[in-house]
């Protein structure tokens, strides 16, 4: 009986109104930038400017080295954190507390100014060098960013390690695997599923965090942009060129993360 009656679909007027409003805001912002005193034609030139490219390469090298070092250190600290040795455990807790607790910028500045308190750095009988020579802007930035990140990585790795079922370790032991082999072949590959997503996130943060090295004069993207701008005063144009590079780097990192996650997604 009711089947021949016309059906009137629910009209979502609110969606139309909010959609139009959002578009209006976006268009307004875009128009404002088009109208603003920005010499858009210059941006591509700055994007490929020699100084900018050097800044880009330095940003990549710094971010990758700091992240790789942080992952290696993070694994060690995570293992200490779950060790049966109470001294190791407490050391790890203190390490994470300190390096996670202090602002990265402050850590970078402390490393950069280390010469103020230690004139020389030496390993008795083996090695001695003036602190000024050893701690360049690059080294200071690497230490500041890497050590801070290693504290975060330690927590991420620990979460990954503890996520693996204890039965897996027992199975590995039962076929005669040593602890090192068990970690490498059984525990870590399975922990990766838990470790990779937050690590990718952190790496994206690291790419942007390298900008703090500009404060101590390391030629990364921001410093490169400022260098170019100091000659032609096109501050916004050079910053936009640097911004474009950051978006490129972050996009590539996101795609890489996607494929890494897929590769390690196999584990059950």
């Amino acid at each position: 009986m009711a089947s021949d009656l016309e059906v009137v679909p629910l009209r979502h007027y609110g969606r139309w109104v909010s959609g139009v409003l959002i578009l209006a805001v976006v268009v307004g912002i875009v128009l404002a930038f088009v109208d603003a005193q920005i010499i858009w034609e210059d941006v591509p030139e700055f994007f490929t400017h020699e100084t900018m490219i050097r800044g880009l390469l330095n940003t990549i090298v710094l971010a990758v080295l700091a992240q790789v070092g942080a992952i290696a250190l993070g694994v060690v600290i995570a293992l200490m954190r779950i060790s049966v040795n109470p001294v190791a455990r407490w050391f790890a807790v203190g390490y994470i507390w300190l390096f996670r607790g202090l602002p990265v910028l402050l850590q970078i500045l402390v490393w950069f100014n280390l010469a103020l308190v230690f004139e020389h750095i030496s390993i008795p009988m083996l090695f001695e060098e003036k602190t000024n020579v050893l701690i360049t802007a690059f080294v200071a930035a690497l230490l500041g960013l890497g050590l801070n990140e290693s504290a975060y990585m330690a927590e991420i790795v620990r979460a990954g390690l503890t996520s693996v079922d204890s039965g897996q370790v027992e199975a590995a032991k039962s076929i005669g695997m040593t602890p090192a082999l068990t970690l490498r072949r059984v525990v870590l590959p399975q922990a990766m599923r838990v470790i990779i997503p937050p690590t990718g996130n952190n790496f994206i943060n690291m790419l942007k965090g390298t900008s703090m090295a500009s404060v101590i004069g390391f030629l990364e993207l921001i410093h490169a942009a400022n260098n170019i701008a100091s000659r032609n005063l096109e501050v916004m144009e050079t910053l936009l060129a640097a911004a474009a590079w950051y978006m490129v780097l972050v996009s590539i990192a996101s795609i890489g993360q996607h494929y890494l996650e897929r590769a390690y997604g196999r584990a059950g």
């Binding site: 079922d165 039965g167 897996q168 027992e170 199975a171 590995a172 032991k173 039962s174 076929i175 005669g176 695997m177 040593t178 602890p179 059984v186 590959p189 399975q190 196999r266 584990a267 059950g268």
Partner: peptide, 19 residues
């Protein structure tokens, strides 16, 4: 670990390596 090579074990919950 070396001693365990000679002793096989089968678990209630299998504990196969899922990866």
């Amino acid at each position: 670990a070396r001693q365990r090579r000679d002793i096989g074990m089968v678990f209630q919950r299998f504990n196969l390596f899922p990866h």
